[in-house]
Design a protein around this nucleic acid. Sequence first.
RNA 1: UCCGGAGUGGCUCAAUGGCAGAGCGGGUGGCUGUUAACCACUAGGUUGUAGGUUCGAAUCCUAUCUCCGGAGCCA
Length: 431
Amino acid sequence: MPEYILAKHLSKHLNEEVILKGWVYNIRKSGKIWFLVFRDGTEFVQCVVLMNEVSGEVFELKTTLTQESSVMIRGIVQEAPRQENGIEILVKDIEVIHIAEEYPIALKEHGVDFLLDNRHLWLRSRQPYAIMKVRAEVEQACRDFFNERDFTLVDSPMFTPNAAEGSTTLFETQYFDRKAYLTQSGQLYSEAAIMALNRTYCFGPCFRAEKSKTRRHLTEFWMVEPEMAFFDIHDDMALAEEFVEYLVQRALKNCRRELEILERDISKLEAVKRPFPRITYDDAIAVLKRKGFDIAWGDDLGAPHEPAVSEDYDRPVMIWRWPAASKAFYMKRDPEDERYVMGVDVIAPEGHGEIIGGSQREEDIKVLLERIDREQLPVDDFQWFLDIRRYGSVPHSGFGLGLERTVGWICGTHHIRECIPWPRTMARLKP
RNA sequence: UCCGGAGUGGCUCAAUGGCAGAGCGGGUGGCUGUUAACCACUAGGUUGUAGGUUCGAAUCCUAUCUCCGGAGCCA
């Protein structure tokens, strides 16, 4: 291993001399003292350069070092109560690795478009840095959660031969001498996989060619989708609830520093404990009517409705038992009332919207064929999917959790494009 | 696709019909405890594009392009 240490480990080296390698985040100059805010991708730390502690050459670097220049710093780790992390470096020596050209991103407010054009550099800033750390933790937590609960990772293909649900728009791509589509969900494949492996999850990018221009939409986003044999809708909701609680608690446990950088109100996250409220679609309609919304049974819950329902709770709310007409063909009908399907949406608090969509799946081939027929879906393309119901069909359920929306909620970001390293939206394909 | 908003220096914005400005960033100088440090000086402009109205347009009109976020749809 190299002899330098990572800044995140500095607190273990109090009063010792250490070597750091990284970048200049900011410089504040005074006469015979200057301050260099150093970052190495693991932590930010202030370094103090005093005239009588370093050579004249090193002291004069205050005039040549620029924002984002790369450096090696040798210095002593000191306690500094005034610093956010309680530590600073008394510099003994600085070795310049590269002097950066004039850096486009100043330490001030910038427009979103400018920052996204410079995403490759913007990632170095504090907030994107912290969000990427949280994203990585949430992603790892997803894998840990399912791996610890007897799930097998079975990833689904990105290229698909046809529309899975028909309704959403798919990206079309040339696949040798025919068309293929980019996947919008791994669910149908997971339904097949659980008949082999009982409980599975897939985790990867999904693509939606919807012309959505809102802060909750990306054309490429990541979704984690568990699928479980022998789970009914209630088992499904219990798992979703446990999963969301787990993700939030993991972030609280392992991302304290990052949430601090993001100035996230921790108490809002600490409130996210089971049980989550469960209300039916009918309940939601009643609540909305009471709040004065002009809404009728059968209407889908749109943008003003979701927050109106979730604002009554300090934790995610699960809305289940939806009108069949508004939901996908594969959802299981309520045996007690055919007008309903056993679907569930989980709405995050604080206006962050839907983070999970799930359902018990229809296991009866006759019912499934009816729905495929009524929605005029190409039945031939679904023969393999129907096979699942031909050979030992069982009740089963699953859900999909949108990674960026979840990370956006945990981090309290305004727009989910900040929650993916290289966002793809309708208007943005670069960098 | 529809509705709304915005395009002015590298960046963030001001100037609402009358000399295009400020802050940040860049440059120069000053300061031994700064926290997006501060102070002084300095360089930097075809006001998205094309037309029009006017003595005069960043500003008003027409067209057009781009972006933004909201609806629909959804994770």
